[in-house]
């Protein structure tokens, strides 16, 4: 009987796997853990890519803008990049968070592909990424003028995402600005 029971092991393992998969269906990998939405961007002090001084939270707030998490090792970032250039061309301020990357490669990337970023925060150890709960690259956060995170998008920002999700929020936040 013992040897027959052994044959049930694959079934048992599959049942566990199926439970995980079922649970996974209910989760959106692109969804933000709700904790940070409408919370201020965490404080940080990190070097600037290609710059001498450290950057802090104050450097990226003051206007409605995007914080884009990227890295040279990220395939999807390459796909996303041309659209970011286009957005930057339209005057949308984009701040880069260069996540767990090496500085030289990142600088070369910007020379090669063009630079859509106002400035780039170097997060070599991923500390700010940890505070933000970065899941992977690319990710894009929408910040309001006070530096509060209003939205998070995991994955590529393209024409579709911008037009249907980010742009309406971006415009309504901009409309709020003069009042405050």
């Amino acid at each position: 009987m013992g040897s027959r029971l052994k044959l049930f092991i694959p079934l048992l393992l599959f049942a566990i796997l199926a439970l995980f998969l079922f649970r996974g269906l209910g989760l959106d990998p692109a969804e933000m853990p709700s904790a940070l939405i409408d919370q201020p961007l965490p404080e940080f002090s990190l070097p600037e890519l290609g710059g001498a001084s450290n950057l802090s939270r104050a450097d990226v707030i003051g206007q409605v803008g995007l914080l884009n998490v990227w890295a040279t090792w990220c395939v999807a970032c390459r796909v996303e990049h041309p659209y970011l250039l286009e957005l930057a061309g339209q005057g949308v301020p984009i701040f880069g968070l260069n996540y767990k990357d090496d500085d030289r490669g990142a600088s070369e990337w910007l020379v090669e592909l063009g630079n859509p970023y106002e400035l780039n925060i170097v997060d070599r150890e991923g500390t700010l990424g940890l505070d933000l709960g970065v899941y992977g690259a690319p990710e894009t956060y929408l910040l309001d003028a006070q530096g509060v995170i209003r939205f998070r998008h995991v994955g590529i920002v393209d024409q579709n995402v911008w037009a249907t999700i980010l742009q309406p929020l971006y415009q309504s936040l901009q409309a709020e600005m003069p009042v405050q």
Partner: peptide
């Protein structure tokens, strides 16, 4: 996703059950 998961459960779960009962022990 739910549709494929149910299908996956029937096919894989069913065949592994069959395996557990019928494979030579």
């Amino acid at each position: 996703g739910l549709f494929i998961l149910i299908f996956l459960a029937i096919v894989v779960g069913g065949s592994l059950t069959l395996y557990a009962f019928r494979a030579p022990a």
